[in-house]
Design a protein around this nucleic acid. Structure first.
Lengths: 202, 202
DNA sequence: TGTACATCAGTGAACGCGCGTTCACTGATGTAC
DNA sequence: TGTACATCAGTGAACGCGCGTTCACTGATGTAC
């Protein structure tokens, strides 16, 4: 039962999407091809018609997942907010919320998989780096367009800073959430409050 | 061949130490009890004489690993540096170095395992949270003792900030190291430079 | 202090189970003529 | 435009292998008397 090229491409994308979701939830090592193919709606023997190995899927799903998260950011930054709240601060509020902390499968791919990516091969890390760079570009171009913007170099530095603080806070908040909920919230709130203060000064 | 209580306790600690090192290197899911027991110098059947499950070892090795890292920090902060450089800044320089980034097995336990800890049960996360709180205490009491110190609350906020930035930077730098070495270094340098500037202002 | 026995940290083999990968087979699609 | 055939995305079963866990056994230690 051969499929049309379009149908085959759609099925391939289903596998990538299922992998992205499950990887974010359980990590690269915590998910089998069996789970992924079942989630995508197929039997797992057919996996190798689309990818040569689990590592190839890992690299593909990583970039696809980060790009999906990035598109959410782009959308959030382009939206007008009620009141005169900055869209960036508004996004940080959502990003540093308990809701996002507890939502592994639909949340930020960088935050969910950075720890795992450290132990992956060059190919997976190249995908990860590509996604990170694209997010930095989004943040830097937003900062550069702000009223009190400095140089392009300082915009990129700000972007790196924002990325490190937001992902770092979520990663740590998740690591202690079940064991010490108040510490987890304290971390998120401290970093968010700091963004609030910083952005009023600019 | 029963052993003295002292010998048995030492052997138990060997297992914990081996687990800590291997977990930092390869993550909780990436290491088998076989590897751990072999590294500690035993056959793997004996594991259950010391721990009731892998999860119990995971919780124990996590706290032990973080405490070991914390003792390194305490030592670094109490040391006088040549020139009048701050011991804290000096520690950050070492923490945010390529050497530390590439040294998973002897490096910071929080940074190596935060991503994995997010997917562990309450018991492991309680250990993780305990270790994080102890590190925050170390940093906060150091900040509180600085010449320009503010309130105790602001010292803790500073500590959380430092923890999030340093671990966040190392985690992201590791995630892209093999795929984009210059991005990896850029992240480390940007965060370190920011600490330099901030600490001169205080 | 000596003796007899329970304890328990080791060993090494075995157990199910899930994993990544392979393979023979199917049958609709896409291509060559 | 029709026909004949190669292609290839599916299925479902099988393969080794490594994992966490269990178990029978060993023999020195620690304890009860």
């Amino acid at each position: 039962m051969k499929l049309t090229k379009k149908q085959a491409a759609e099925n391939r994308q289903s596998i990538i999407n299922a992998a992205g979701q499950l990887f974010r939830e359980r990590g690269f090592d915590g998910v089998g091809l069996d789970d992924i193919m079942k989630t995508a709606g197929f039997t797992h023997g057919g996996f190798y018609n689309h990818f040569s190995s689990k590592e190839m899927l890992t690299a593909t799903a990583t970039l696809s997942g980060i790009r999906h998260s990035n598109s959410v950011i782009t959308q959030a930054l382009s939206q007008q907010t009620k009141s005169n709240e900055s869209p960036l601060l508004c996004f940080f509020k959502r990003y540093l919320s308990k809701k996002h902390r507890d939502d592994l499968s639909d949340g930020c791919t960088i935050a969910s998989l950075a720890g795992d990516a450290a132990r992956q091969n060059e190919q997976v890390q190249a995908s990860f780096a590509q996604g990170v760079n694209e997010e930095l570009d989004i943040l830097a171009s937003y900062v550069a367009a702000m009223p009190a913007a400095g140089t392009a170099a300082s915009a990129r530095e700000s972007a790196i800073h924002m990325l490190v603080e937001t992902t770092g806070a979520i990663i740590l908040a998740r690591a202690v959430a079940k064991g010490n909920p108040s510490l987890s919230e304290e971390i998120l709130e401290t970093i968010y409050t700091d963004f609030q203060i910083h952005m009023k000064h600019e």
